[in-house]
Amino acid sequence: MFDRLVRLIRIYGNGGLIHAKFQIQGDSLIRVTIPNKNLMQYNPGSYVFLYVMTPLGFWQSHPFSPFISRQSGEEGSLTLLSKRQGGITKNLFNQLTASNGQAQHKVLVEGFYGHTPPLRVFHTIVILSSGSGITAVYSVADSLRNLASRGTHVVFRWIVQNESALDWANAELESLVGVVDLNIYITQGINERESATEKNATSSLPVLPITYSHDRPNVTAWVDGLVDEAKGSVAFMS
C-alpha cells in the first residue's frame, strides 16, 4: 500500500497526465518526447516508468533511461527511446506507422529513480555503449562536459550497426563533438569491395567522428589501451 502511495506521489509530482509526442526513429525505434516544464528534478543516469494511456496499454508501465533533448525545437524536453518488441511497443509502432510515423498520446511519468554515478573523482572516465543502450549513458556523458573542459579525460564510444542509427540522437551526439573524446563505430553498411578507410573518407556525416569497420571493435583491446594510456585513476561505465 505504501509503495503504491509513493508511486502516485511521484506521478502527481511530474504533472499527472502529460501530452507526449511519439515518433518512429530508424527501422525499429520509438522516440518519446515529453515537455520538461512540470517534471520533478532530473538527475543524469536516473530512470522512470512510463504509462501510455492507450486502450491496450494503460495498465502497463515500462522502465526507461531518459535524456534531455538537444534536437531543434525540442531543447530541454525529456526524451525516451524504446525498441519495438512485443506487446505495447509493437502496438504503438504499428499505430505510428499508420499515422505517418508520429502521434500524440497522453502519458504518466513515474520517477525519477536512481542516481548519477559518482564518476567525478576519476582522472579518466570511459563510457562504452552499443545500439539503443546509448540512452542509459548519454545523459551521464552530457553531464560531464564541464568536467571535460577542465581537463578530465572523458571517453565516449558507441557501437552501432549502420548510419540510420544516428537519427536517434544526432543533435545530442553533435553537442559532444570537441567536448569529450567521442567516436562512433559503424559495423555494417560497407560494400564488400569498399574498405573501411574508403568509407571513412566518403562519409556523408562529416560532423561526427565515425569509424567504419567490417567487424565489431575489440573492446578488450580498447580497455587495455585506455588503462595503459591513462594518467591517474580510471572509471568505466557501460
Rank of each mutant, 00 (worst) to 15 (best):
V6L: 08
R7F: 00
L8M: 01
L17M: 09
L17K: 14
H19D: 13
K21T: 12
G26A: 05
D27M: 12
T33W: 00
L39T: 10
M40A: 14
Q41V: 13
Y42D: 06
N43I: 03
P44Y: 07
Y51N: 14
V52S: 06
P55Y: 05
Q60H: 09
S61Y: 08
P66D: 08
F67C: 13
S69A: 11
Q71F: 08
G73C: 04
E74V: 00
L81P: 01
S82V: 15
I88D: 12
K90H: 10
N91I: 07
S99T: 09
G101D: 00
A103Y: 00
V109G: 08
G111P: 04
F112H: 05
G114P: 01
G114W: 01
G133Q: 04
A136R: 15
S139F: 06
D142P: 03
S143W: 13
S143P: 12
R145I: 13
A148W: 01
T152G: 01
H153Q: 13
H153F: 09
V155K: 03
V155H: 06
R157F: 02
Q161K: 15
N162C: 10
E163G: 00
E163Q: 04
S164L: 13
S164A: 07
L166T: 11
D167K: 14
N170H: 13
E172N: 04
E174L: 04
V177M: 13
G178V: 07
V179W: 00
V179E: 05
D181F: 04
L182P: 02
I184Q: 07
Y185L: 07
Y185A: 10
Q188F: 08
G189D: 02
I190K: 06
S195D: 01
N200A: 12
S203K: 12
S204V: 11
L205I: 15
P206W: 00
P209R: 02
P209D: 00
D215A: 04
R216G: 03
N218R: 11
T220V: 07
V223M: 11
E229N: 11
K231C: 09
K231F: 10
V234Q: 09
A235Y: 05
F236P: 02
F236I: 10
M237T: 12
